[in-house]
């Protein structure tokens, strides 16, 4: 019972996307054993819906850990039960499989064809525009295209489904890649308006603002320095407050405290007032405590020491 619940929780939460390779491997082998057990003896222990949810999870895990054959097996089990030509979700999964194993072009072709087939079918009387799930996948297939085109497609999609946070995150990532930090900040704020207590996104937003500060500082010597100076002051405040908000929501958040330490250091804000000095002191203290008591994950703790040595005054 416990294994099933754990895996279903993982399926609902999707933590497997950001797991470390060792942990992912563990989960994969657990899920593999469990689904093999379920497939060999169908019983009332697990309802049909749960069974196929676990199958889908196993499919993702297999793709992530490079087990193509296992992924194909899960795919086939799902295809046996559902109609591949009419199930949007299944077509999406199939495209994901092709994207991971063969290439983007083939995946896009499949999506295009399936969209046409589904439109022609008698049960789905609509244009392929309506197949939002498919459309999203079609957009994501274009990841390797020129970024401007990809961003344009993402923007169009985000207009139709403005509540899809994954699209906003993807957009923010693209903007950061293109050095458009102000636009990335906007996208991250969009996510926060939907999920106001996502402290990791708040910290990410603050980090982006930190990048933006550096970008603005490099432009200070150019024309319009007065406007930029004004903007810089605003972004500095907003950056500090966002880092503080993230550690207010999660008091052991090493990333947030590192940000507080950095943003209140001499290097980033040369003219510090007493509050900033106090905050700097507090951040140092908290980070040391987190490090000593191991309050954060090992990956995060790895970064704490270099940050402490860099920004400690």
């Amino acid at each position: 019972m416990a294994t099933k619940d754990r895996l279903l929780k993982l399926y609902a939460g999707g933590q497997h996307v950001t797991m470390s390779p060792e942990k992912l491997n563990d989960v994969y082998s657990l899920s593999k054993q469990f689904t093999a057990l379920l497939t060999s003896s169908k019983n009332s222990y697990c309802s049909e819906i749960e069974y196929f949810q676990l199958m889908e999870l196993q499919f993702y895990l297999a793709l992530q850990t490079n087990h193509d054959v296992e992924a194909k097996k899960c795919m086939d089990i799902m295809t046996d039960r559902f109609n591949i030509n009419e199930s949007e979700k299944l077509i999406g999964l199939r495209a994901l499989y092709l994207q991971a194993t063969v290439g983007n072009e083939q995946a896009f072709q499949l999506l295009k064809q399936s969209g046409e087939i589904a439109t022609r079918g008698s049960t789905l009387e609509n244009t392929s525009e309506d197949l939002l799930h498919l459309k999203k996948r079609a957009v994501l297939v274009h990841q390797n295209d020129p970024p401007e085109k990809y961003v344009e497609m993402l923007l169009k999609f985000s207009e139709v489904t403005p509540l899809d946070t994954s699209v906003w995150k993807e957009l923010a990532d693209q903007y950061i890649k293109l050095n458009h930090y102000d636009k990335a900040i906007n996208c991250l704020q969009e996510i926060l308006l939907i999920q106001p207590f996502a402290y990791n996104i708040i910290a990410l937003l603050a980090e982006t603002e930190l990048q933006y500060i550096k970008q603005l500082e490099s432009e200070l010597k150019g024309p319009g320095a007065y406007v930029i100076k004004d903007k810089l002051r605003e972004v500095r405040i907003s950056c500090r407050r966002h880092f503080l908000r993230s550690v207010e929501l999660c008091s052991n958040y090493a990333r947030g405290w590192s940000g507080v330490l950095a943003v209140t250091s001499q290097e980033i804000s040369p003219q510090r007032d007493t509050t900033e000095v106090k905050l700097h002191h507090l951040a140092t203290q908290r980070l040391k405590e987190i490090q000593e008591k191991k309050l954060s994950s090992d990956e995060n703790l790895k970064y704490v020491t270099p940050i402490l040595t860099k920004y400690q005054s």
Binding site: E88, L124, N126, E129, D130, L131, L132, K135, E159, V160, T161, P162, L163, Q189, L192, L193, I194, P196, I202, E234, I237, S238, R241, H242
Partner: peptide, 30 residues
């Protein structure tokens, strides 16, 4: 399958509602 115009209408409306409720995440009045 829900029509994309329906989805857009619902989600844009919901977005405005969420903005009213969650606008506290923004830092400046501007």
């Amino acid at each position: 399958v829900s029509k994309w115009r329906d989805v857009r209408e619902q989600q844009q409306l919901q977005k405005a509602r969420l903005f009213r409720g969650n606008s506290h995440v923004l830092v400046s009045k501007k």
